[in-house]
C-alpha cells in the first residue's frame, strides 16, 4: 500500500527530522559513547584543564568500583528503594485506580486531580516540605503517630528509618501517575467479561483475580518497567533531605555517581558507576519482560 518515497518528500523528511536527530545524536548518543570511553580512563580533576593527561586504564574503574564498599552500600540502598518502594507505589496506584473506576463513584475528576497533584509538584520543593513533616519534635507525622500512641520516630536521623521515609515520600509523590495509566487499563477491559463472570457466579475477589488482573497484564509490564527505571535513578530526595546520610544509609547509586563526578571530579570512576547502573537497569528490564511473558 505504501508508495515508494518520492525524492522531494524524502528530502523534506530529512529536513523535518534533521534538527531532532542531530540534537539527539550530539547531546545523547555522543555523550553515551564518550561516557563509555571515559569510564575506561583515569580522567580526574587534573584532566579537566588538560584532557591529554588522562590515561587509558582498561576496566580498572569497573574493578575498583566493584571492590569498593561505598558502591555496594549505594547499590544496596538503591535496591532497597526499588524492591520495596516500587511495588508499594504500584499497589497504591492500582488501589486508587480501582476506587476511581468504581461505577458508583461521583466527583471522579475532582478526586483524580487531587491524587494527581503531587506528581506535578517540584521534587526539590516537596523534599524540603517533607523534611519538616518528618521533624522528630515538631513534625506533623510524629504528632499524628503520637495521637495513636506510636513513635516518636527520628525519621531522617535514624539509619533504619531514613530510607522508609524516602520511600513514603516517593510513593506519595508518584502514585498518581501510574494511577492514571491503570485507570486507562481498567477502561480497556470490556464490561461483558465482568458480566459473564458474574453470571458464572464469580465473587468480587474472583472477578479481580480472573478478569481484572489478566486484563491489566500489558499495563503491568509497561508500568513495572518504567517505575523500576525511574526508581533506580533515586537522587533528589537523599540529596535534599539527608545528603545521603545518616551513616550513608540513603546514598544511592546516582548520588554516589554525582559525588564522584561533580564533587571530586573523578569523571572516569563516575562514568564506570553510570554504566554499571545502565547494565543493572537493562538487566532488570529484560527480567521483567521475561517474567511477564512467562506468566502469560
Amino acid at each position: 500500500m505504501r508508495s515508494p518515497a518520492a525524492p522531494h518528500e524524502s528530502r523534506a523528511a530529512w529536513i523535518f527530522a534533521g534538527p531532532a536527530l542531530a540534537l539527539i545524536a550530539l547531546f545523547f548518543v555522543l555523550p553515551l559513547l564518550a561516557g563509555f570511553v571515559l569510564s575506561l580512563t583515569d580522567f580526574d580533576v587534573y584532566a579537566i584543564g588538560s584532557p591529554g593527561v588522562a590515561r587509558f586504564v582498561g576496566l580498572g574503574n569497573y574493578l575498583k568500583t566493584l571492590e569498593s564498599r561505598d558502591f555496594w552500600n549505594a547499590l544496596r540502598n538503591t535496591l532497597y528503594f526499588v524492591v520495596v518502594g516500587a511495588p508499594i507505589s504500584l499497589l497504591v496506584s492500582l488501589g486508587a485506580a480501582m476506587l476511581l473506576s468504581a461505577r458508583l463513584v461521583r466527583f471522579k475528576s475532582v478526586f483524580r486531580t487531587i491524587y494527581f497533584a503531587p506528581v506535578v509538584t517540584t521534587i526539590v520543593a516537596v523534599a524540603v516540605v517533607w523534611r519538616y513533616l518528618y521533624h522528630p519534635h515538631y513534625g506533623l507525622l510524629n504528632y499524628l503517630l503520637g495521637l495513636v500512641g506510636l513513635g516518636p520516630v527520628d525519621w531522617l536521623g535514624d539509619p533504619h528509618w531514613a530510607m522508609p521515609a524516602i520511600i513514603l515520600l516517593s510513593v506519595w509523590k508518584n502514585f498518581g501517575y501510574n494511577m492514571l495509566i491503570f485507570v486507562a487499563g481498567l477502561q480497556s477491559i470490556p464490561d461483558e467479561l465482568y458480566e459473564a463472570a458474574e453470571v458464572d457466579g464469580a465473587g468480587p475477589w474472583s472477578r479481580f483475580r480472573h478478569v481484572t488482573l489478566p486484563g491489566l497484564a500489558p499495563t503491568f509490564l509497561f508500568v513495572g518497567v518504567t517505575v523500576m527505571i525511574g526508581y533506580f535513578q533515586l537522587f533528589v530526595e537523599p540529596y535534599v533531605m539527608t545528603q545521603g546520610g545518616p551513616l550513608r544509609s540513603t546514598t544511592s547509586v546516582v548520588l554516589l555517581m554525582y559525588e564522584q563526578g561533580f564533587r571530586w571530579w573523578r569523571m572516569g570512576a563516575a562514568s564506570a558507576i553510570a554504566f554499571i547502573l545502565l547494565a543493572i537497569t537493562l538487566a532488570g528490564t529484560l527480567v521483567q519482560m521475561r517474567l511477564q511473558r512467562a506468566r502469560r
Binding site: 527530522a17 536527530l21 539527539i24 550530539l26 547531546f27 545523547f28 548518543v29 555522543l30 555523550p31 553515551l32 564518550a34 561516557g35 571515559l38 584532557p51 518497567v225 527505571i229 533506580f232 535513578q233 537522587f235 546516582v254 555517581m257 563526578g261 561533580f262 569523571m267 563516575a270 562514568s271 553510570a274 554504566f275 547502573l277 545502565l278 537497569t281 537493562l282 528490564t285
Partner: peptide, 24 residues
C-alpha cells in the same frame, strides 16, 4: 528502523550520559 532505535533509547537513564555531556 531509526524510530525503533529511538524508542529503545527510552530505557537509558538520562544520568548515564551526563558526565560527558557536561564536558562537551
Amino acid at each position: 528502523r531509526i524510530f525503533g532505535t529511538l524508542l529503545g533509547a527510552l530505557v537509558v537513564p538520562a544520568q548515564v550520559g551526563m558526565l560527558p555531556l557536561f564536558l562537551l
